[in-house]
């Protein structure tokens, strides 16, 4: 073992691990911040930005001028979606951002009901 050359070990992992960026906060449930949930900065949020971590400030900067979807925020910051969700939860808790839920997907039509309507129409107007 002594003969092992003292080659240098290069550390490739990012210097600041993700759990430090989120300060150990737990992941909010997925439905709170869906990919298409829109986020915008609250009024006067820029004043509070100085005390934020650089990453949270970055997210806030991105949504300062209008609404941006959660997925877009993640893409811009190159942070994993979950990390962005945690940062958004932190920001929303301190009242710095507001969110708008995405438009819910149209409910699946009731096939039986439609069939009944079709039958009714057929009976009425003939087919």
């Amino acid at each position: 073992m002594r003969d092992e050359p003292d080659h240098d070990l290069e550390l490739t992992s990012p210097l600041v691990p993700l759990f430090v960026i989120t300060n150990g906060r737990s992941l909010p449930p997925e439905h709170v911040y869906e990919r298409t949930t829109l986020v915008s900065a609250h009024e006067g949020a820029s004043a509070a930005a100085r005390t934020l971590s650089p990453e949270a400030r970055l997210v806030l900067d991105l949504v300062m001028d209008g609404f941006l979807s959660v997925a877009e925020v993640a893409a811009h910051t190159h942070l994993p979606l979950g990390i962005v969700r945690i940062l958004l939860a932190e920001l929303e808790e301190s009242g710095l951002v507001i969110t708008r839920k995405p438009v819910p997907r149209a409910e699946r039509a009731d096939r039986e009901l439609l069939n009944a309507v079709l039958d009714g129409l057929k009976a009425r107007f003939g087919a």
Partner: peptide
């Protein structure tokens, strides 16, 4: 797995 719920556990493993 950034968008997955498993991320929470991965962060702990990382720690």
């Amino acid at each position: 797995y950034g968008g997955h719920a498993v991320l929470g556990d991965l962060l702990e493993v990382n720690h």
